[in-house]
Amino acid sequence: MSFFSKSPWILHYDASSCNGCDIEVLACLTPLYDVERFGVVNTGNPKHADILLITGSVNERNIDIIENLYRQMPDPKVVVAVGACACSGGIFARAYNIQGGIDKVLPVDVYVPGCAARPESIIDGVIKGIGALEMKRKKSA
């Protein structure tokens, strides 16, 4: 990945995270880590987003929301699963209301491990996500 043809925008959704990874995602946007230097902007609108950053695992109620958000994003798009819960269900994998990681419903491109995932690894995941986005764009072109 030598250059970015455009600035990818991020849509962050908290599936059933404990807030830990969530606030680390937000911490990435703030002065110490500042992902905006990579041209990444956090948006609230799925129709503007290229990268879907999901924290937490899939449960009975948010499964529709996750699918809905993903459907609204324009192609090409990339899904980054942040934290142990988003990767596999984590510590709550056996709880009655948890169905498992995000890959139960969406094709996940990048898995970011950690409980809570550290900002450095989240940034790393986003950068890998940008790489995946580039590849998808080339394929579709």
Binding site: N59, E60, R61, Y96, N97, Q99
Partner: peptide, 18 residues
């Protein structure tokens, strides 16, 4: 309120089954 996957997760039947 929660719309859980297991209906009534703390009923006796559900707890015993788990």
């Amino acid at each position: 309120l929660y719309k859980t996957a297991t209906k009534v997760p703390f009923s006796h039947a559900a707890v015993k089954a788990r």
